[in-house]
């Protein structure tokens, strides 16, 4: 039992030791890697791991085979209570080292018939406690004495920086009007419709008739009715008037699909339409003329 556990932990330690090498190799490899090199790397690593495992198995088998002799060695009084002796004790599976000596000697205590033993603190518990104390001291030291660890503000900044690297930089100036043309393909409009239903219908009505938000089916627009203006309104919202910014919630493509779907509702005259708001615009007003 304890032997197999030992084998696992040793294997784990070997893997941990191998990890930095692996990461480095992957780093340098990735830049100029050809597939052959990568295959070679994996081959070498796998072989290494296999060799280590065989080695470990041999060690375990050796310990198992030599157990009686090791046991004798462990039982020598000059060895038994030394540190190396204890390691040996763990190897030969002396349970006392983990759970403590259970003497079960009663104390001179009697509380309403309840008696007490005074058995040792189980070593696994005691050393576990020490380990958590070491962890706690290390934790506070790492973050607040050495100041190596990132506290939440720095962690957030790093996360945002990383995100900025991953996401293609798009010009993000709210005053920059895009130059899209409205989509007309039925597939695009139907995606636009389903997005509209989940995200826009609560405020603008299922048919765009307007509820909390304005009617989207008439020719009157508060923030421009040309597709790029609708797109912009969707993307950045209208602060203070309740139009939510969908940037970050919908992708550029999705916003264009919704904008195109909205424009496809022009003139549908749904029931319960909200009265017109804003300025009247011809549907296909060009951007350049503004």
């Amino acid at each position: 039992m304890s032997r197999s556990r030992l084998a696992y932990s040793l294997a784990g330690a070997a893997l941990l030791a191998a990890r930095p090498a692996l990461a480095q190799a992957a780093d340098t490899g990735a830049a100029s890697a050809t597939d052959a090199q990568r295959t070679m790397l994996w081959f070498v690593l796998t072989t290494l791991v296999l060799v280590l495992m065989v080695f470990l198995l041999l060690v375990v088998a050796l310990i198992n085979w030599m157990r009686p002799q090791l046991r004798q060695l462990y039982d020598l009084p000059t060895v038994h209570d030394t540190w190396s002796g204890r390691v040996l004790g763990l190897l030969v599976g002396d349970a006392r080292l983990v759970q403590g000596e259970v003497r079960d000697e009663l104390l001179d205590h009697d509380y309403d018939g309840i008696h007490e033993f005074d058995n040792d603190l189980p070593p696994w518990w005691k050393y576990g406690f020490y380990a958590t104390i070491v962890f706690a001291i290390g934790y506070v030291t790492y973050y607040h004495v050495l100041k190596t660890g990132q506290l939440q503000g720095a962690e957030y900044a790093a996360e945002m920086q990383q995100a900025a690297l991953l996401i293609a930089a798009t010009p993000d100036d709210p005053n920059q009007v895009t130059t899209y043309t409205a989509l007309t393909a039925p597939a695009e409009l139907s995606s636009g419709k389903s997005l509209f239903m989940t995200n826009c219908a609560p405020c603008h009505g299922a048919s765009g008739e307007g509820k909390v938000g304005p009617n989207l089916t008439d020719e009157y627009w508060l923030h421009g009715g040309e597709v790029n203006h609708v797109y912009k309104t969707i993307k950045y919202g209208v602060n203070g008037k309740g139009m939510v910014a969908w940037k970050g919630k919908l992708s550029g493509k999705q916003m264009l699909q919704v904008a195109s779907y909205v424009l496809s509702l022009q003139g549908t005259k749904p029931a319960n339409a909200k009265p017109p708001q804003g300025e009247k615009e011809a549907p296909a007003k060009a951007v350049a003329s503004r």
């Binding site: 079960d104 009663l106 309403d112 309840i114 007490e116 033993f117 005074d118 058995n119 040792d120 603190l121």
Partner: peptide, 15 residues
């Protein structure tokens, strides 16, 4: 617990 089990408490020093 010791009452119901009829057993002495395992370890005074642990307590």
């Amino acid at each position: 617990l010791p009452k119901a089990a009829g057993r002495p408490v395992y370890s005074y020093r642990l307590s």
